[in-house]
């Protein structure tokens, strides 16, 4: 009897949240899955096309999404660049700061400065970086700096060249997100067993050896966690690309998350865009499984 009453009460407490989660996340996601099999313009595509949207996206029919000719390019390839350099960069720099700043007198100030970009909007960060990257010699510090060391050199169009634009965007991404990686890894580093590190140092191990042989292996879980968080962020990313380049020049800086936005809200191809959203979801499912497993492991540990 008690269990039954508990059960009704439990679901009553859950009800408002569950209704919103189903209405805004679960049901829309299923509805988008259905739309991904339809084609044509307009907000309620009516023409059933089967897997045609997916075939076009993944078969190389849309060179801005996936161009299979050598060298490969497109949003999917750009996302691989993001995963390598953005996730890699934030983890490496965040870890370096966590270790290098540890115990310094100015540690708090250093870390606050590097964390600061995390609290501003991607829109504001985009303004900051469009300013920094500007080819105008009175505006863009980077180009002014380059021309001051090698006068006469043409300004580099950081956001205007199909070769550099992705790296320039990733640089802005690293500037924004390193604060998070640093915070998580610094907390983990500080909680390492100091006795082991001290003992190794007394025994003559250099700091370098201590880091590679002791600290790094002990931080593995947190490093994986941060890397996966960053991969998830880069897959979902829209705002930074939209505000900094609008996906250009010539579609060369699109990411998967951005391609969805562009096809649906700029080109009015809702079915086609829905297929992109589903590809994005499928790519994220392994990380979903990872998160659920991680939390499950923490639960059983408690």
């Amino acid at each position: 009897m008690k269990v039954k009453r508990d059960s009704i009460q439990g679901w009553l407490f859950l009800a408002p949240a569950l209704i919103l989660l189903v209405a805004y996340l679960v049901y829309p996601c299923l509805s988008t899955l259905k739309m991904s099999f339809y084609g044509g313009q307009g907000f309620s595509p009516k023409r059933f096309v089967g897997f045609a949207n997916y075939a076009r996206l993944l078969g190389g029919g849309d060179s801005l999404f996936l161009n299979l000719k050598w060298p490969p390019s497109g949003a999917l390839i750009n996302n691989i660049l993001w995963i390598l350099f953005f996730a890699g960069g934030t983890v490496v720099i965040g870890l370096a700061i966590a270790v290098l700043a540890d115990g310094l007198r100015l540690e708090k100030i250093f870390k606050s400065l590097i964390f600061l970009p995390m609290i501003i909007s991607a829109t504001a960060a985009s303004v900051i970086f469009r300013f920094l990257y500007s080819p105008d010699p009175h505006i863009g510090l980077l180009n002014a700096f380059i021309s001051s060391i090698s006068p006469g050199k043409k300004p580099i169009p950081w956001l205007g060249s199909t070769d550099i634009v992705n790296i320039a965007l990733i640089g802005a991404g690293i500037w924004i997100w390193t604060g998070l990686s640093m915070t998580v890894l610094s907390a983990a580093y500080k909680s390492l067993d100091r006795e082991i590190l001290e003992a190794a140092k007394v025994d003559g191990a250099s700091s370098w050896t201590c880091f590679w042989r002791i600290s790094l292996p002990m931080l593995e879980d947190q490093i994986v966690f941060v890397a996966i968080t960053m991969i998830i962020n880069s897959l979902k990313l829209v705002d930074l690309v939209l505000v900094m380049t609008g996906g250009g020049p010539m579609g060369s800086s699109r990411t998967i998350g951005f391609s969805f936005y562009w096809e649906v809200f700029n080109n009015n191809l809702v079915g086609y865009g829905s297929a992109i959203a589903m590809i994005l979801l499928i790519l994220l499912i392994p990380f979903m499984v990872f998160q659920v497993r991680r939390i499950k492991a923490q639960e059983s540990y408690q």
């Binding site: 989660l21 829309p28 996601c29 998160q291 659920v292």
Partner: peptide, 22 residues
Amino acid sequence: VFFSVIAILVLPLQTTWVPVLR
């Protein structure tokens, strides 16, 4: 319910916008 919530944390909002607009 709890583990579904954890899974939904990773769900990209791109999969929801059009139906929510409708």
